[in-house]
């Protein structure tokens, strides 16, 4: 599933000796029923990967949602994914944040760790280093909230494993370009 490396880095090389990269793609869509099914159907129907997908309404005036998709593929496949997405009628704008501009990416995770004694103290210590917050605690458990890029979350979760990692819920990646330029609605 989730790659250990950050987006944009070379993940692997396929059988045809082409490099397979991870890309973060932002998509502005009409907020209407079925639109998410169209996007997901396109990925499953054509055999593309979805590493992560997030969606929420972001524009009340135009009633639009923003989808952030992290996907992997050769440059030719990534180009296809973008062209295929752009072709869908309720999709207004497609932006490849990995290559079109510098961008900021964040993910949030809630991590439940169950344990007692020394392990419990150790988990708190690590959480502190990672700036994870305790959002729930009982005598035998913590729920940590951690925000960061995918790599940071992966690292934190890995460290929690021997300390009683019980449950993880992640939002998936959201991303936005750096600088003044915004993503327009493109009518």
């Amino acid at each position: 599933m989730r790659g250990e490396r950050g987006p944009g880095e070379i993940c692997e090389v396929n059988a045809q000796n082409e490099t397979v990269n991870s890309h973060t793609i932002a998509v502005l869509v009409d907020n209407e029923p079925g639109v998410l099914a169209r996007v997901i159907g396109l990925f499953s129907g054509r055999g593309y990967n979805i590493e992560s997908l997030t969606v929420a309404k972001t524009d009340n005036v135009n009633n639009m949602s923003r989808i952030t998709i992290v996907t992997t593929g050769t440059p030719m496949i990534i180009e296809q994914i973008k062209a295929q997405l752009s072709r869908l009628v309720p999709i207004h704008n497609v932006k490849d944040l990995t290559i079109e501009s510098a961008s900021v990416e964040r993910e949030l995770a809630l991590v439940k760790v169950v344990g007692e004694g020394e392990k419990r103290v150790e988990s708190l210590r690590i959480a502190d280093i990672f700036r994870a917050r305790v959002v729930d605690s009982s005598n035998e458990s913590f729920v940590f909230e951690i925000v960061g890029d995918t790599g940071k979350l992966d690292a934190f979760i890995r460290l929690m494993e021997p300390l009683g990692l019980a449950d993880v819920s992640r939002t998936g990646v959201v991303a936005i370009s750096r600088g003044v330029k915004a993503m327009d609605v493109a009518y």
Binding site: M76, E79, Q80, A83, Q84, S86, R87
Partner: peptide, 11 residues
């Protein structure tokens, strides 16, 4: 006319 037809099978 369809950008998704370009570079789909053949560069």
């Amino acid at each position: 006319i369809d950008p998704s037809s370009i570079n789909k099978n053949v560069r």
